[in-house]
């Protein structure tokens, strides 16, 4: 299991800050959750709910013919923490190969230095997102 450079960079950014500024960085990610591409916008049936999150977070993963992963997610503005986590994964995983995504360590959410600032509940929500993304990637890469 190895961390792709995109995620390693995000992790290092978080760890370079003090606790309070880590939350600020998470807020920036939250504000930068990419919009859904036009083709997926009116297709709620494609999306999977992340049951591990108390707020309604929905995920959809596509894998291109060249084997590149795209992670698409929606999360409500009134749940900025959860939205921030979805944004980290969407930005950090999109564009990687299936193999690279499947090799991301399952405890990546715990490596961001947020365990003191964010409740374990929330971090497990992010672990749930990562796990569901990897499962979708595995399913869609086989096909």
């Amino acid at each position: 299991m190895s961390l792709p450079s995109s995620l390693a960079e995000i992790r290092d950014d978080f760890l370079s800050f003090e606790q309070k500024d880590r939350l600020q960085l998470l807020l920036e990610f939250s504000n930068e959750l990419p919009e859904l591409p036009e083709r997926y916008r009116d297709h709620p049936e494609l999306f999977e709910r992340v049951e591990e999150c108390q707020s309604p977070v929905f995920l959809f993963v596509d894998v291109s013919a060249e084997g590149r992963v795209g992670v698409h997610a929606t999360a409500p503005a009134e749940s900025p923490t959860t939205r921030g986590f979805a944004s980290i994964l969407a930005q950090g995983l999109s564009g990687l190969t299936s193999t690279a995504v499947l090799e991301v360590p399952d405890d990546f959410p715990m490596q961001l230095g947020l365990t003191a600032a964010v409740s374990p509940l929330r971090l497990r929500g992010m672990t749930g997102m990562l796990w569901r993304i990897k499962r979708q990637v595995a399913e869609k890469s086989v096909a």
């Binding site: 939350l23 600020q24 807020l27 939250s30 707020s55 009134e78 900025p80 600032a117 964010v118 409740s119």
Partner: peptide, 21 residues
């Protein structure tokens, strides 16, 4: 409950108390 919600917008003059930290 969401520790970032205050930063998104709060009542003018309000301070935040973070239950977790």
């Amino acid at each position: 409950e969401d520790v970032l919600l205050y930063e998104v917008g709060h009542i003018p003059g309000a301070v935040k108390v973070d239950w977790h930290t």
